[in-house]
Design a protein around this nucleic acid. Structure first.
Lengths: 353, 353
DNA sequence: ACGGTTGCGTCAACCGGTTGACCATGGGCC
DNA sequence: GGCCCATGGTCAACCGGTTGACGCAACCGT
């Protein structure tokens, strides 16, 4: 009868008339333990009667592992719910907890401390802002760490999507519709995904021999506001593009909105395609045409990797998923008579223009 | 020189040539401790040099508190990001971590164990499914627990929004536009919020003396699929409604979609208003008209309450927030010539109809 | 010179499980 | 009857911090 209300392993041991060690071993299923079935049952009965739950911290301390992994996501991004769901799935299957916490683009001391304090057995960090020095994370990790959807500069432990291909596929989709004057509403300068997606865009444009107006390569945040900004930049150009690729769906929403505000119809005047698919987009009318990325698989695989890879081994994985275009209502053929932007095409077509 | 790579408080104590107790007290800012400034600096320097971080579990065990609170949310609902953000805000301000985990409508043994194991100093549980026995949660909580956005049946510890009023406001908005035949695409039977919202709807209809067709009170999930289902039920009626109130924005999306699929234009043929505002809805064109609920405040207040209320005290709080209608493009006046459903109004208007 | 402060830390007993080493008992075998 | 082994546990030293009680100088006033 302890003064504290908590039932400890000692209480169970007393009730079952065995040593604490037996309780510990029985309840955590130690295969090396040999006990009579009757004893085992007595222990289990005592634990049930007392509603005993091993103390999380005591166990974590003794075992030197927490039984949980941490996932840090940028706050407020609805795309992350898919990543979380995927991670949760694998964590549950392995009997681990998944703790999610949200950050504002950078890891404050608060979270660094946490990750290094043994509270989790592995840390997945998604969506760090540009310029955040991820090296800090790996300097003395104390716990295996993996960057999700961002490559790290120093230590090589990351998992990413094939952003380059996604951007290429998106751009090619527009080109296949006949677009030639295509603008890029890209991500923040310095962010790894932004660069890779932009590369994919450039590749696709180059492969189609299309002229790329440098003022149509916009850097903006992956937010609706960023999309609005991108449009304001793009439309400075005397000849507006007939299509825009948005590097992110949230940003794409802003692009769409801003185009509409300026009286440009989507897709009649300007087509729009974005990378990533927002939750429930299929139920939107009109829905945004986009390239669907395997975000759930990203979460799933990230947990697998962090659990199955040694601490110090590098992890460099690019998910080679099937890239699917989700056909919405924001892409059509360019308006008739819209000129090309490809210089060669431009010259050739001039007579007909 | 320990074999383990972790720096412990003993390492710091050794380097600073003081007792471990001093290190502990200096680093956690014990006000009762008297030390020379020089000693204090020595300790701090040693901690910095060794990159010492107190072990999470050891501290949790010794202090008998975790320094973290847990938030359990239903997985995959984008509305929850606002709740999480609000909770995070307060937790950060109080120097606590906020751990979020997602559940599938019910608390599995896995999470119950966690909550009761001392891993968190308080548990916020949002969005339990209908029929889940929340009593289980309170039977032997071991940690203060608070239901978020659901009332509990047994122990009274919950915080909810004014769902009734939200539904009333939504309905009144339609009535003010001249609608009389209004259907209710409600939540799952047995869910607390669903009942309260339905009450609000009925109240508003009764107050306006409008006839409520019983077959227009639909129960469905708070999902797009639920909305689709609701529409299929509502449209069985020979005279379709001129407006629908959706009890949830996700569900509203499905309603909107299904109406469109059946060739009904929104809002020309049927108006639609939903409770809750989805992320970035302002950037949608068209946007769904909805009643915006203070979800961020819900998260914020939930953390405050769980920290500032004694374990065993009841908590019954209904957030009396300002209810704002977010005007989208899904509500207009009813189509001309649409009959009323109010029986009295029906009779009175017959000559003019 | 001596008792009482005050300043500055030290001591050691926890917190609640875990885990490998060790031990008692009884049966089998020769 | 003595030895060995298997069975079925017990023992106690950790894990890494925390915290209240206690110690020991030096200094102060009388």
């Amino acid at each position: 009868m302890k003064t504290t209300g908590r039932t400890t392993i000692a209480d169970v041991a007393r009730l079952a008339a065995v040593d604490r060690a037996v309780v510990s071993k029985v309840l955590s299923g130690d295969p090396a333990l040999r006990v009579r079935d009757e004893t085992r049952r007595r222990v289990e009965a005592a634990a049930t009667t007392l509603r005993y739950r091993p103390n999380f911290h005591a166990r974590g301390l003794a075992r030197a592992r927490a039984g949980a992994i941490g996932l840090l996501v940028p706050s407020g991004n609805p795309l992350m719910v898919a990543v979380i769901a995927g991670a949760e799935e694998v964590a549950a299957a392995r009997g681990l907890l998944l703790w999610t916490a949200s950050h504002e683009g950078e890891l404050t001391e608060r979270y660094l401390r946490l990750l290094r304090s043994g509270a989790v057995d592995g840390a997945l960090v998604a969506g760090l802002r540009a310029g955040y020095d991820a090296d800090e994370l790996f300097h003395d990790p104390r716990v295996p760490t993996l960057l999700v959807n961002r490559r790290s500069v120093g230590a090589e432990r990351w998992i990413i999507l094939d952003d380059e291909r996604a951007a290429r596929v998106a751009t090619e989709h527009l080109i296949a519709q006949g677009h030639q004057r295509i603008a890029w509403a890209g991500g923040p300068a310095g962010v790894d995904t932004a660069e890779r997606r932009q590369n994919g865009f450039r590749d696709a444009m180059a492969a189609a021999d299309l002229w790329l107006d440098p003022s149509w390569l916009i850097s903006a945040d992956y937010t609706p506001e960023g999309g609005v900004h991108a449009v304001s930049q793009v439309l400075r150009s005397p000849e507006p593009p007939t299509a825009i690729v948005a590097a992110d769906a949230n940003e794409g929403l802003g692009v769409w909105y801003a185009l509409h505000q300026r009286g440009l119809r989507v897709p009649q005047d300007v087509s729009l395609i974005a990378i990533h698919k927002l939750p429930a987009e299929d139920y939107r009318l009109p829905a945004m045409t986009c390239v669907e990325m395997p975000l759930r698989e990203l979460g799933r695989r990230a947990v697998e990797l962090i659990l199955d890879t040694p601490w110090d081994a590098p992890i460099r994985e690019t998910l080679q998923q099937e890239i699917r275009i989700s056909r919405g209502a924001t892409v059509s053929a360019p308006p008739p008579g819209s000129g090309p932007a490809s210089m060669t095409a431009y010259i050739e077509q001039r007579p007909g223009g």
